[in-house]
Simulated scan of single mutants.
Amino acid sequence: MDSLKPDSDALATPAHRAAAFSVHVFTALGAGVALLAMLEAVREHWTAMFWWLGVALIIDGLDGPMARRLDVMTVQPHWSGDVLDLVVDFATYVFVPAYAITASGMLLPLAAPILGVGIAVTGALYFADRRMKSDDNHFRGFPGLWNIAAFYLFLLHPQPVLASLAVATLIALTFVPFHVIHPVRVVRLRRLTLSLMVVWAVLAIDVLARDFDVGVPITALLSAIGIYVVASDSAIRLLRSLKA
C-alpha cells in the first residue's frame, strides 16, 4: 500500500489517482447504504434497517484510514473527502434514524413529527458547526449519533412519554458545551474505550440477530457502555474540579 502513496515532489500517476478516487467511491457507497436502510425503514423492517446502518458504520470507520494511507487529499484535490463524509454521515447518522424514530410509534403521536423535524434540523446544524470537535478530539455536545440513539430506543422501548422526553433532551444537548468522547481518537483511556467498543459491537450484533429480543444482562451492559461514552468525560472533569 505504501507504494501507492505518491512522492510529494512527483505528480500522481493514473494508478495513484484511481486508487485515491476509489476511496471517495467507497465513502459515497454509504449514501447508497442509507437508501437501502431507508427502504427497510419505510417497510417497518426495523432490524434490517439497523443492519444496513451497521454497514454504514463500518464504511465510515474504514474510509478515513484508507484516505490517509493513500494521501487522497493530495492526489485528488478537486474532491473534498470532508464534505462527502459529512453528506453521507448526515444521511446515515441523522436522516434515516430521524425517520425511524418518528415513524416507529414509540413517541407521543403529537410530539413525534415535531421531534423528528427537531432531529433533522439540529443534526444539520451540528454537522455544519466548525466547533463540533474539541482540540483533544472530543465531540462538543450530543454528536448527532441518532442511529445509536434510535438503537437504544428500540432496545429499551420506553413508554412514549419517556421516549419523547429522551429525544427532546438529546436535541437540546446538541448545543450544550459538554464533551463526549470519540471512541477512537480520544487518547485518554483509549484502551478501555476501544475494548468497550468491541464488546458493544459484539452485543449489538447479538441484539440484531435476536431481533431485539434479549435479556436484562445484555441490555444493562449496552446501557452502561452508552453512559460511559456520553458521560465519562464530564465525570472526570467534575472529579478533577472537586479535587482542585
Score class of each variant (00 low, 15 high):
1 M>T: 10
2 D>A: 11
3 S>P: 09
6 P>G: 07
6 P>D: 04
7 D>R: 15
9 D>F: 13
9 D>T: 15
9 D>K: 13
10 A>F: 05
10 A>L: 09
11 L>I: 05
12 A>Q: 06
14 P>W: 11
15 A>D: 12
15 A>S: 12
19 A>V: 09
23 V>C: 04
25 V>L: 15
25 V>T: 10
25 V>F: 13
27 T>E: 06
28 A>N: 06
31 A>G: 14
33 V>C: 01
33 V>H: 00
36 L>N: 06
36 L>V: 14
39 L>I: 14
39 L>K: 13
41 A>K: 03
43 R>P: 03
46 W>A: 02
48 A>L: 14
48 A>G: 14
50 F>V: 06
51 W>L: 10
55 V>G: 02
55 V>R: 02
57 L>E: 08
58 I>Y: 02
60 D>G: 11
60 D>Q: 04
66 M>R: 05
69 R>E: 07
72 V>K: 00
75 V>T: 11
76 Q>D: 09
77 P>Q: 09
78 H>K: 11
79 W>S: 03
79 W>T: 11
82 D>G: 14
83 V>H: 12
85 D>I: 09
85 D>Y: 05
86 L>H: 15
88 V>Q: 00
91 A>T: 08
94 V>P: 01
94 V>H: 03
97 P>M: 04
97 P>W: 09
98 A>G: 03
99 Y>G: 01
100 A>S: 04
100 A>E: 00
104 S>P: 01
105 G>F: 08
105 G>H: 10
108 L>T: 06
109 P>F: 13
110 L>Q: 08
113 P>Q: 07
114 I>V: 15
115 L>G: 02
118 G>F: 10
120 A>Y: 06
121 V>I: 11
121 V>H: 00
122 T>S: 12
125 L>I: 13
125 L>E: 04
126 Y>I: 00
126 Y>R: 04
129 D>F: 06
134 S>L: 09
135 D>I: 04
135 D>E: 14
137 N>G: 08
139 F>E: 04
139 F>I: 00
139 F>W: 06
140 R>W: 02
143 P>W: 03
144 G>A: 02
146 W>I: 00
146 W>S: 02
149 A>T: 08
150 A>Q: 03
153 L>F: 08
154 F>W: 07
155 L>D: 03
156 L>D: 01
156 L>P: 00
156 L>G: 05
156 L>M: 13
158 P>D: 07
161 V>A: 11
163 A>Y: 06
163 A>N: 05
167 V>G: 01
167 V>W: 00
168 A>G: 07
170 L>I: 12
171 I>Y: 06
171 I>F: 07
173 L>Y: 01
175 F>D: 04
178 F>A: 07
178 F>P: 06
179 H>E: 10
185 R>L: 12
190 R>C: 08
190 R>Y: 03
192 L>F: 14
194 L>G: 05
195 S>F: 11
195 S>A: 15
196 L>S: 08
205 I>W: 10
208 L>S: 04
209 A>L: 15
209 A>K: 14
210 R>F: 11
210 R>C: 12
211 D>G: 12
220 A>V: 15
221 L>A: 10
221 L>N: 04
224 A>Q: 05
225 I>F: 08
225 I>K: 01
226 G>N: 00
228 Y>V: 06
235 A>C: 14
237 R>K: 13
238 L>A: 14
239 L>K: 13
240 R>M: 07
240 R>H: 12
240 R>G: 02
